[in-house]
Amino acid sequence: MQAYIIRRLLALVPTLLFTSVIVFITVRLIPGDVIDLMLTENDIGATRQSRVQIEAALGFDKPMHVQYFRWIGAVLLDGDLGRSLWQTTPVTELVMERLAVTFELGLMALLIALIVALPLGAYSAMRQDTIGDYVGRSFAILMLAIPGFWKATMIMVFPSIWWGWAPEVEFTPFRDDPLRHLGQMLIPAAILGTAMSAVTMRMTRTMMLEVLRQDYIRTAWAKGLGEKLVVMRHALRNALIPVVTVIGLQAPLLIGGTVIMEQIFVIPGMGLLLLEAVSQRDYPIITGVFLVVGVAVLLINLLVDLSYGLLDPKVRYA
């Protein structure tokens, strides 16, 4: 297993390097130019000279490939993602600080998704074609059909009209007031989580139905097991193997979703950082965010693969 993990991690290296090239180039393709922006912002006459000066100061006068190798070199050797073009704060620091918040939001969303999806999916399968099953499935379709930003907007708007309550716009960090902080994260996490739970729930239901038909489930009944043990011990694990794949596939969507939620609920995560950076053409931050997100997605995929090993002995012993 260890050797397998190491092999998988090494296999990530070329993928990551390729990702870094793509990220570096595409970011520079964003229309608009940071130097124009700086010049207008600071009301400096766009003389040729000031332009050249700024370019040289930021290192943009070098050819693209030189810039890339400088950047990736610093990333690989020092974990240094460069400095913000505007604030000269180290990007690594900025990104890591924001990553924790986004990671927390994503993890909460995932937990909520699983807490909703797994029991509901299993229940729907066990009570196939009963009222409970229909209610569960309708809930899933509803969650899937309503976009997250719409749900978020409704939550922003209606409670304030009806009860004069609105989500806070002042972000409380965890260390200042843990409860208040969690309460703040809960609504966006729930919006993301329920959306994610829809697909996961339907997959859980389908796989449970499939598994409950299997011969080994009949064996479990024939041994005298009750429904709880049949489902929890004998069926769920087998049904979860394909469900894990679906969860893994949704991870990038989840990251996309957090960007939107951070924007709406003013949560200072990577999403908000990215949006600010894009509007200012702050290239090092944009590349930094993309690179970290890329690494995160690859690691999530690796985790998904490793969890197959936990669930399926055939993979573990292969």
């Binding site: 299997q214 011969d215 080994y216 064996t219 009944w221 024939a222 041994k223 005298g224 004998h234 002995p313």
Partner: peptide
Amino acid sequence: MRAVRGNRIAMIFQEPMSSLNPTL
């Protein structure tokens, strides 16, 4: 009924390849 199954009456099935749980 559960107290009878696998306790006072046990059953062996036709399909040994699929009658055991692959994950346990």
